[in-house]
Design a binder for these strands. Structure first.
Lengths: 180, 180
DNA sequence: TGTACATCAGTGAACGCGCGTTCACTGATGTAC
DNA sequence: TGTACATCAGTGAACGCGCGTTCACTGATGTAC
């Protein structure tokens, strides 16, 4: 049942979309290749026609996921301001939807234990976010962007792990207009 | 080979110590009961004389680990200042030693997917840290503590996941004396 | 443009492995008298 | 204080399960002529 080259590209795109969402929702170890392939509408045996293994898929998914998530900051004509991005980032909607949210907040500690190529892709993706947040490129703006990004990631990581009352307090305490 | 009550308590303490370290080093799923029991000097079959299951162990380990980690902030006579705590938190040593470090930075996203009782224990532990950082108890101090804790957790999560150069930049950008 | 054939995307079964949990067993500990 | 016995901490083998990966197979696609 060979497919056309175009159909293969579509399969790959579906696998990547499923992986990007499921890794963020269930964690790297929690999202099995079988689950991902089933979500993409395929059986798990065909996986290796598209990727070398789980690490290869994870690297590709991180690359795509970071690009999508940072896009509002980077889209050329009317990019979102850093402050607006931070307001969205610190919203209850983002906390409730890890599968469509920031890869760093969903996967940070797991990536820290992952293969070098995975860490390299994560580093590249995070650097995109930093540059989107510090568009004037000055050293001061970059420092502010790094601190602001750390605050955002930490707040969402904590808000997702704790009970609701404390989660709301955390988001509120980190909202813009207070310091950076 | 029944052991004395005292010997049993010591076994439990060794299991808890091994679990606290290994969960933070390898993640919840990455640390198997077999590994933990072996590190504690026991065989894995005896685990269920001490805990009901992995979630029970994880809850107990989080409780103990948060208490230990927040101790410098809470020890009554001469507790560490919030600023000194933050300097230690944002050190390369903390980034390099997750097994002895902050449970929130090591396990946050995994706890977000864990059982309610695990999340409850995490919430309790984090609340201890917040109160240690905001000892005067004013609403403003609590907000500042929540924001500062979010910044610290995010910075260490990111620093552990990215390559060395960017990791150092992140820690430096979040060091005290800049805003909160 | 047609025809013959090699390629390969996808299927479904199989593999070896490590996991959390269970269980029969051992023998020192703790208890009842 | 001694003795008889029930308890139970720890052992080691076994269990069922899901994982990532491999492989023989199928048949439409793409290519060489």
């Amino acid at each position: 049942v060979r497919m056309s080259a175009e159909a293969k590209d579509q399969s790959r795109a579906r696998i990547l979309a499923a992986a990007g969402r499921m890794f963020r929702e269930r964690g790297i170890e929690g999202a099995s290749l079988g689950d991902i392939m089933r979500t993409a509408g395929l059986t798990h045996g065909g996986f290796y026609r598209h990727f070398d293994g789980k690490d290869d898929l994870l690297s590709a998914a991180l690359s795509q996921t970071f690009a999508e998530f940072a896009a509002p900051l980077l889209d050329a004509p009317a990019a979102e301001t850093a402050q607006r991005f931070r307001t969205r980032y610190l919203s209850p909607e983002h906390v409730a939807s890890p599968g469509a949210g920031c890869p760093a907040a969903a996967l940070g500690p797991e990536v820290a234990r992952a293969a070098p190529r995975v860490r390299a892709e994560f580093t590249k993706g995070l650097e995109q976010m930093v540059q989107g947040l510090a568009r004037d490129g000055s050293p001061g703006a970059r420092r502010e962007a790094l601190a602001s990004l750390s605050l955002m990631v930490g707040a969402v990581v904590l808000a997702r792990a704790v009970d609701n009352g404390l989660a709301e307090e955390i988001l509120s305490a980190c909202a813009p207009t207070r310091s950076t």
